[in-house]
């Protein structure tokens, strides 16, 4: 068996033949994906196609059954010596995850902490940075997502859109190299979707590498550099937004787009 080498430095994410089983259910069936640094990759696909599972494999919240994933040059979850793989310890995997921010459909803010404390928590505990510096940085991040005046509010006192923007600030506080978004606007009232997409578009403009699962085709077309359409655990087609969204080659892609557009 030939062992695939780590990807070159301009590649932020590489997935190589990723398979994932839940028991006997095969949810991912050989996913290959390359995302270059500074690029926005939009994942489209019907419900149950394995998009969330794939995102969770990227930051090793889920263990892949076979295949490999590299993020920023690190093989996620393992260390390779020769052609042997060694599982990493909890501590080492946690260190790998610091380079990867994640934003969830249901926000998952810490309800017992204020917005500012939510943003400060990880840099304080994980990086042990000085408190004053972390506080200044957290305030700047809340300002960046337009919530400077909500620093002292608890999540329960914020609207869905505001909560999701705090969640984005919280992820950015670790200064990640890669941001994963799992349907960040699906739980929001329609009039709140725009404020979150605006923040994400700003991030993309600043050169953040992002993988975004979304049904917002407008966002995919405008912000995405690469669009990947998944169905039943495989990548059906991928390419530029113009190729995949405006001129899909596959019947399955066309059928899906007809439903969401």
């Amino acid at each position: 068996m030939t062992v695939p080498d780590a990807p070159p430095p301009h590649v932020m994410v590489r997935a190589d033949q990723v398979h994932k089983y839940f028991g006997r259910l095969e949810v991912l069936r050989g996913i290959d994906l390359t995302v270059n640094a500074g690029q926005v990759c939009v994942l489209l696909g019907p419900s149950g196609s394995g998009k969330s599972t794939f995102l969770r494999c990227i930051n090793h919240l889920e263990k892949v059954t076979s295949g490999r994933i590299w993020v920023a040059g690190d093989l996620m979850g393992y260390r390779q010596r020769g052609d042997k793989l060694y599982e990493l310890r909890d501590k080492q995997i946690a260190a790998q995850r610091r380079d990867i921010g994640m934003v969830f459909q249901r926000f998952n803010l810490f309800p017992h902490l204020t917005a500012l404390q939510n943003v400060m928590e990880a840099p304080l505990r994980v990086k042990s940075e000085p408190r004053e510096q972390v506080r200044e940085q957290a305030k700047a991040l809340l300002d960046r997502v337009g919530l400077a005046d909500k620093a002292a509010s608890y999540p329960a006192q914020l609207s869905g859109g505001q909560q999701q923007r705090v969640a984005i600030a919280r992820a950015l506080a670790m200064r990640p190299k890669l941001m994963l978004f799992d349907e960040p606007t699906s739980a929001l009232d329609p009039e709140l979707v725009g404020e979150v997409l605006d923040v994400m578009q700003g991030l993309a403009r600043d050169g953040m590498t992002m993988i975004v699962v979304t049904h917002e085709i407008g966002f995919a077309r405008e912000v995405g550099h690469q669009v990947v359409f998944m169905d039943a655990g495989v990548v059906v087609e991928s390419g530029s937004p113009r190729e995949v969204i405006d001129n899909p080659r596959e019947e399955r892609t066309r059928a899906f787009l007809a439903k969401v557009l």
């Binding site: 919240l61 946690a94 995850r97 803010l109 990880a122 994980v126 992820a171």
Partner: peptide
């Protein structure tokens, strides 16, 4: 909610 542990884990907390 398991999402809480998940969010903390994703932030790199042990």
């Amino acid at each position: 909610d398991p999402g809480q542990e998940e969010a903390a884990t994703a932030l790199g907390m042990r």
